[in-house]
Design a protein around this nucleic acid. Structure first.
Length: 508
RNA sequence: GCACCGCUAGCUCAAUGGUAGAGCAGUUGACUCUUAAUCAAUUGGUUGUAGGUUCAAGUCCUACGCGGUGCACCA
């Protein structure tokens, strides 16, 4: 078996001469530090007692030339940036930590000759720890006057331009660590992402939902229509699929009596990459026994209003040139009412396969393989452009909702809604099908579809039918694409901007 | 899959087919309250890769690689 490809640069012979020189200069400084008995890579820990942003808050009232300088010593640690040397005896510089930037002031007469000489060996990007007291400089900037410092790690590679940072999108994704070092707004996106996920989790936990972890490796990946990734287990000598949804296993847990379950999980779909698709992405799926889609809609509305409030501090948010309000209640419109309102299309025509194809032709759209696909295309063209503010579209036709329960008294429709905002789908929810006979019939139909060559239809999961045969209470379920939600809340136009390490082709 | 755009110094960017430049970073020097510090000097290039056209290619042509965007496909 061939070795997997190695990644990155191993041999500096591959580097340009300029970069090799810059690296060499840094290695020389490392050697000089070691010669002075200060080995950065020998350090194992540092007592950090303060962070940049906290100091700015704590000493907001500190004045320049304060009569009584604050006596308490603080210790900070971070990456050295923007060194400003003032002659042979004083240096200003910035230190970046997790919370932001703080200025430091290093004087030879305060620090001592030997430590000052060591400080002179530092390069931009080195990790340092400093102790000292705070003062406000002549120009009004809060500054740490250093009384001691330690080199905690040496940076052996030149950093990007301090002002412009890293702009090359390819390099930003391939070396996200550099992107994070130099770009505050990139770091901010991922802090917001973490907050969104944490708030989601808290919101669900508070409502007695149980967080569950279902397998990512499955014998049969089901619960959605998508091509899976395949992998192999050596000891068992079996091929496995990576999951394309958490749906079927979470519903097994509903059968098992857990009643309220959710998973915030990584999903893998073997499909193309564009601004809204990454092969691995994160979904929140949540199931509530004894709820119908109506309770789920309430839950959905509260959750989104809460998340927007938590992130933005209000219910308003702008996405690109659009302005959205997540103040409750959200707008609501029935599926066929929307098509009638914006497309002057009537239900009878759309529910007729030939009629739907005629509408497609009238819109100058290419013919679709199936009736359901035709409806999706029509909806996308006619309705989605109007859905800027969060809007629940409800009462979907059954023919595009294979896992949803039929609406009582109207068997062409199902108890399902999708939430749209900024013209894209934000969530999808329905009352779950729990009739095992109906589920079996729908799987049988999918076998036929699969035989016709649609390889996005998963093979049937008969054990899931068996689970339903044990009895699943009436249940509502919802799926929320976390990455797309983060895009909305951080005003990003590409999913790769909200994924730390988006998939890239290997180099060479 | 198709189309378009991009790839030049460590980083950010220039360069009517005619000697590849600048700012930052680096190096040397000056300055003990600067903040994109400032001032002086200075090093640094296989222009993504491989071909082709031309007296001459960063620039034009072809193929390929990587990235981005749009369309198609797809939830």
């Amino acid at each position: 078996m061939a070795d997997p490809p190695a990644l990155g640069v191993r041999d500096e012979g591959d580097l340009g001469r300029r970069e090799a020189e810059l690296r060499e200069a840094r290695r020389a400084n490392l050697a000089a530090m070691r010669a002075r008995g200060a080995d950065p890579f020998a350090e194992t820990r540092y007592d950090v007692t303060a962070h940049a942003a906290d100091l700015v808050r704590r000493y907001a009232g500190l004045a320049h030339d304060a009569a009584e300088p604050p006596p308490d010593a603080v210790a900070i640690a971070g990456r050295l940036a923007a060194v400003r040397k003032m002659g042979k005896g004083a240096i200003f510089a910035d230190v970046w930590d997790r919370t932001g930037r703080i200025q430091i002031y290093v004087r030879k007469d305060a620090l001592g000759d030997e430590p000052f000489a060591l400080f002179d060996l530092l390069d931009l990007g080195d990790i340092v720890g400093l102790t000292g007291t705070m003062f406000r400089s002549k120009t009004g900037e809060l500054t740490l006057r250093a009384t001691s410092f330690t080199v905690l790690a040496k940076s052996l590679v030149p950093l990007p331009d301090k002002w412009h940072g890293l702009h090359d999108v390819e390099k930003r994704y391939r070396r996200r660590y550099v992107d994070l070092i130099t770009s505050d707004h990139v770091r901010e996106i991922f802090l917001v992402r973490a907050k969104i996920v944490a708030e989601m989790r808290r919101f669900c936990d508070e409502r007695d939902f149980i967080e569950c972890e279902t397998p990512t490796m499955l014998h049969v990946a089901g619960g959605a229509a998508a091509r899976p990734f395949r992998t192999h287990h050596n000891a068992l000598d079996i091929d496995l699929d990576l999951r394309i949804a958490t749906e079927l296993n979470l519903k097994r847990l509903i059968v098992g009596g857990l009643e309220r379950v959710y998973e915030i999980g990584r999903i893998f779909r073997n499909e193309g990459i564009d601004t809204t698709h990454n092969p691995e992405f994160t979904m929140l799926e949540l199931y509530a026994a004894y709820w119908s889609v109506h309770e789920m809609m309430e839950f959905n509305e509260e959750l989104f209003a809460h998340l927007v409030q938590a992130v933005k501090g209000s219910y308003e948010l702008s996405y690109g040139d659009k302005l959205l309000s997540f103040a409750r209640p959200f707008k609501r419109i029935a599926y066929f009412d929307a098509l009638a309102r914006w497309g002057d299309l009537d239900r009878a025509t759309l529910l007729d396969p030939a009629g739907a194809q005629r509408v497609l032709t009238g819109l100058q759209l290419p013919p679709s393989q199936t009736h359901g696909q035709a409806l999706d295309k029509i909806f996308e063209r006619i309705v989605e452009p109007h859905l800027v503010d969060p809007t629940f579209v409800y009462d979907y036709p059954v023919l595009i909702s294979p896992l949803a329960k039929r609406k009582q008294g109207d068997p062409d429709l199902v108890d399902r809604y999708e939430l749209f905002g900024a013209n894209v789908e934000l969530s999808n929810a329905f009352t779950e099908l729990n009739d095992p006979a109906d589920q079996r019939a729908r799987f049988e139909a999918q076998i036929a579809e699969r035989k016709r060559g649609n390889d996005e239809i998963p093979p049937p999961d008969w054990d899931f039918v068996q689970a339903l045969e044990y009895g699943m209470p009436p249940t509502a379920g919802i799926g929320i694409g976390v990455d797309r939600l983060v895009m909305l809340l951080t005003n990003q136009q590409s999913i790769r901007e909200v994924i730390l390490f988006p998939l890239q082709r290997p180099i060479g």
